[in-house]
Design a protein around this nucleic acid. Sequence first.
DNA 1: TTGAAAGCGCTAACAT
DNA 2: ATGTTAGCGCTTTCAA
Lengths: 358, 358
Amino acid sequence: MTETVPRPTLEAVAALAGVSRATASRVVNGGDGVREPLVERVRRAVEELGYVPNQAARSLVTRRHDAVAVVVAEPETRVFADPFFALQLRGISKELTAHDNQLVLLLTEGRDDHARVGRYLAGGHVDGALVFSLHLDDPLPGLIRRAGVPTVFGGRPGWNDGERGDVVYVDSDNRGGARDAVRHLVGLGRGRVAHITGPLDQTSAADRLDGYRDVMADADPRLIVPGDFTPAGGERAMRTLLDHCPDVDAVFAANDLTAAGALRVLREQGRRVPDDVAVIGFDDMLPVAEQTDPPLTTVRQDIEGMGGLMARLLLRGHGDRVTAQAAGEVAGAGAAEEAGGGPSGVVLPTTLVRRASA
Amino acid sequence: MTETVPRPTLEAVAALAGVSRATASRVVNGGDGVREPLVERVRRAVEELGYVPNQAARSLVTRRHDAVAVVVAEPETRVFADPFFALQLRGISKELTAHDNQLVLLLTEGRDDHARVGRYLAGGHVDGALVFSLHLDDPLPGLIRRAGVPTVFGGRPGWNDGERGDVVYVDSDNRGGARDAVRHLVGLGRGRVAHITGPLDQTSAADRLDGYRDVMADADPRLIVPGDFTPAGGERAMRTLLDHCPDVDAVFAANDLTAAGALRVLREQGRRVPDDVAVIGFDDMLPVAEQTDPPLTTVRQDIEGMGGLMARLLLRGHGDRVTAQAAGEVAGAGAAEEAGGGPSGVVLPTTLVRRASA
DNA sequence: TTGAAAGCGCTAACAT
DNA sequence: ATGTTAGCGCTTTCAA
């Protein structure tokens, strides 16, 4: 990996253009306060030599890196099962690219890796971090806080508010979306609306359950069955449901994958969808929701948009800590900002997408 | 993103330990040639101050970055549809982490981005690159070659050999795997074995088709139907197949997703699997292959292993260009090395996994 | 074995 | 508006 041909330095550019290194630097960094003829000459020299600034040298003096870490905890879980993560990554990448920032990906597998990530973030290699997939007891937030790196979390963090409140996150309106879904089911005249939950140690799953409860305040507890965001979990849950409550006439599944599993069992058991049982999912994961039989009515969230927003929030916090106020400003219309103490975040709206299953 | 507390420098460590900066540096970098008592003192000082080396300063002098770029072209395509990409990424990440390298992710969306990637790679920000998802006419290889960055490609590149042969890639034995699958079908006594292809501008799809042809040299051409690696494509193809060749009794699908689509149509049309029609997929994408009805017999490839191998190949090329020879050595048992001119690569073996569909 | 000193390539005061 | 100069924090000769 040796550099075969030594790359040209600013010095070389300056020499060729017949100016000082300082002037050459100014031109390379935008050219403010340099007169046109010189700018032109430097530009030409840059072109001719194929000059590319040495980022290491630049960082050494500016103490900036134009790089952001994306930390994904426990990729074994959900991350690799559905395209969720990939879509967020795409949103992030687009935004970072637009601002000339690099994306440093940090995947962690269990506890040991957390220390490594902490060290890396503390090492001042990046200007900020985007952090995903935190569970309730995750030690990462603490490490990150100590590292002193500006951070935006993906999804509402689940830890206690004891951690003090200057935590910024971006999330979908899981609770509101769930409410919409369940209301739709009720509006269809369904009286026995069940819910297959996600893993409740993730806030997204917990929030969706809360949304269900908002509408079905006094539902039969047997109508709430645990799932795990996978099709297999959805199948299991649906079997349990059919067993305990054969009169169920609607199911709100915590995500599309779960709904897909439930649909399979319903068909297998000869229940017609939506005639006998109406089904709604969550996510609007296209490859899933459009492929099911029948196509899935579901709650859409703008996953790619979430990623982009996270990046924007982080970048705009430049030179400062990322604050909830800034978050609100950047998020713009459609997003709701949480009030009061505790973690503060930007919550993106969801929309119900009607297909054939409900 | 201001540095609130100035991080301790090597200077500070040296001072606290009562040694010169040079000695402190030696200890931090392994401690060779420094006597034990001093090593100990420096270590303690590092600990006490929470010293972390400034990577920018280090890179400036060493001209190394301990960072590798992962370039993924056209994420809109396959990349986000199945967990393939995520698994490779995981394999890469593990390997890089084990060697204290960082992973810089470069996602591209179309032509404009290629220039950006080229510039980045040419900028000497990373020690090497891992490149994925190249299509036949991709301009990226040229840019990369010019950038002079050591590179390993994921999957056999499809461009002409005119580009000269010192290209290293890692791939699965797509052709051999396909042969195994089709032979298995034939061994089951099936005489009308069809193939639903992938997008043939990707070498993986082309190679699988070649493997099919190796066994079914004089098959009815109508038994070969184009697909696109998606379930929808698989459905379409299966319908066409049933239309044109109602007597088909086996299908080798180019990947599991395609097979899943085909299975759906078969069930819908009342054909029993595997009794009437046997089906084999490719990939052994667990969440897909185990969830289908019936569970899918398929060709397994070690996706995560491919990623890891790519990273190992690149890292071991350290200080030198990555060569096919090195590739062979690193790959070890089970891998076949391509001989002769043209792109040279390491080909990982596949295995047939029998489930219920064939 | 250890230390002194010379840069790596760049930006940012400060002078002019 | 442009040039001069002093580092940024580190590794690496070279001397001792």
